[in-house]
Amino acid sequence: MELLPLVCLCLLSCSGDAVRVVVEQDSDAVLPCLISTKENITGKLFDWKKDGQKEVFMYDAGIHYNNGRTGQDEQFKGRVSHFQDQLKNGNASIKITRTKMADSGNYSCDFPRHQPSQPFIIELVVGAAPEPYIKILAETKHWRLLQCEAHGDPLPTVEWKDSDNNTLPAEKPHISERGGRSYVTVKITVTKTDNYSCVATQETLSHQVAANTSVLLAGE
């Protein structure tokens, strides 16, 4: 379950408020930028920068960093593309592939030759928790020991819930490090047939995701 609404293409004229895009690490991120008039921008100039300095992507009448233009920051080389077939609709959005934690920050989409210049600001947050992983550790006819593991940055809080959305008492969370990432693991012993959910929440990102499992106990 996602608390965040789907990010839609916004008008360049609404640049007063930054749009936040939240993605998992190693996934792709689409940063939206649509000129309000929806005019054809195939022959125009638009420039994407990170934190006001790093050159992310520049397009100028067909010339850009992926076909010969120089000046792109090393951090983004080979990972940023635009939507060529959407330029005719005023769409200057870009896609960043294989996102890294270092990609988090504020991005600006600007049409420098358009006066007055009104950069559209996008906040990219990399580190959203992916769907938790549920594992059966042990079981009998009367009970089952379940383990839920989640990761993200910031590290999410993890809760177990039953089919009525009640939060269930579980063991104390265990934090571990693996492959340069932090993981939180929470175990629970269930004693009745039901559908159970492991819910990972990152409040600062307004992000929540869950994994589900069904338990059928023969001893009931």
Rank of each mutant, 00 (worst) to 15 (best):
N165K: 07
D162F: 07
G62N: 04
A200C: 14
K88T: 00
Y183K: 13
N166F: 11
Y196V: 11
D60P: 00
Q25N: 09
L145V: 07
A138T: 08
T204C: 01
F76Q: 00
S182R: 15
E159G: 04
C33S: 07
C8V: 14
R69P: 02
T157K: 11
G219V: 13
Y183A: 07
H64G: 01
Q202M: 09
K38W: 00
T42C: 00
T167Q: 09
D164S: 08
S117N: 05
P156G: 03
T191V: 09
K49E: 06
C109T: 05
C10G: 02
D73F: 07
A18K: 15
C14A: 13
E55V: 00
K135E: 10
A102F: 00
V23T: 15
N66H: 10
K49Y: 02
D17L: 13
Q86Y: 06
N195I: 15
E131W: 07
K44H: 03
L6C: 03
W160V: 00
Y59V: 00
Y196K: 13
W143I: 07
I41H: 11
R113V: 05
M58E: 06
N89V: 01
P5D: 12
D28E: 10
R113F: 08
V22N: 12
A138L: 08
A18M: 11
D26T: 10
S197F: 14
